[in-house]
């Protein structure tokens, strides 16, 4: 049985706007899975649906199912989902800006009581740089440090599956390099699975075992990382390889049409 199984997921915002439709994906134990797609493809919505909506989001999973281990997760509040071992590192507003680094970690409730200290040590172990920044207010951190803190806080939740939304957005290649290494280390040392949402297919497919391509709220392509890297469409539209022969716009439309209703 897979760790996470998302099946034909449909999310509706404000009771009227369908954001994603028929999204299906799986994450196995100890796997890093990449979810690729352009802006507005529905990646963030998928992650948010998995990690839970609050009343103020005014969004609902209207169809399909999200199974984590043996529990159904759809439409449960985020704090419940997090306590079941599924932590999200969101894209924006990923830290509490007025709290210090240490406080950002300390606010996370332990999944099992008495493990707070151990979790804290673990977070600093993966991101030693944060140790020096403990007393710094999170709002003053650089983009890379902020991402570290966010992932560290995610680890504090003691997750079995870490959902990371846009790991590389707005960060320098050096910082991204460091962060991807940390993610791999986290997976290897803690056995945590990771579902990584990325705009940059290069970054994602560099560390992922498996990948999905999401477009217009639907999965259009999936396969293990190697297969996706080799896929001509992915190369062209996500990896930025133009190839030798230039393709016309009509072919692009063709590709989109042929992949419809994948999941």
């Amino acid at each position: 049985m897979s760790l996470l199984t998302v099946d034909k997921l449909e999310v509706v915002y404000q009771r009227a706007i369908t954001a994603i439709q028929g999204v299906s994906l799986r994450v196995e134990e100890r796997q890093i899975v990449a979810l690729l797609g352009t802006n507005g493809a529905g990646k963030t919505t998928t992650l948010r649906a998995i990690s839970g909506f609050l009343g103020l989001d005014d969004a609902r999973v209207t169809e399909g199912s999200i199974r984590f281990r043996d529990t159904q997760l759809e439409n449960r509040p985020p704090y419940e989902i997090t306590r079941r071992g599924l932590a999200l590192v969101p894209e924006r507003d990923k830290v509490f800006p007025n709290l210090t680094v240490a406080e950002n970690l300390a606010v996370v409730p332990s999944r099992t009581s008495g493990t707070a200290r151990k979790m804290e040590e673990r977070a600093y172990h993966f991101f030693p740089r944060l140790t020096d920044l403990r007393r710094r207010t999170a709002g003053l951190l650089s983009g890379g440090e902020r991402q570290m803190l966010a992932i560290a806080a995610g680890i504090m939740c003691d997750p079995d599956l870490l959902l990371v939304d846009e790991l590389s957005l707005g960060l320098s290649p050096v910082a991204v390099e460091e962060l991807t290494k940390s993610l791999v280390a986290i997976r290897d040392e803690l056995g945590v699975s990771i579902l990584l949402v990325e705009q940059s297919a290069t970054v994602a497919l560099g560390i992922a075992d498996y990948g999905y391509v999401l477009e217009n709220g639907r999965i259009v392509l999936d396969g293990d990382a190697q297969r996706l890297r080799d896929h001509s469409d992915v190369q062209e539209f996500y990896l930025g390889h133009t190839g030798s022969d230039r393709r016309s716009y009509r072919d692009v439309k063709q590709y989109r049409r042929s992949r419809r209703w994948y999941g």
Partner: peptide, 21 residues
């Protein structure tokens, strides 16, 4: 107390970190 401050700043993130709002 920290959780109260955190929830005040960003309730959604607080919930995502497992804080019972």
């Amino acid at each position: 107390g920290m959780r109260m401050r955190a929830a005040g700043q960003n309730p959604l993130l607080a919930a995502q970190r497992g804080i019972r709002l």
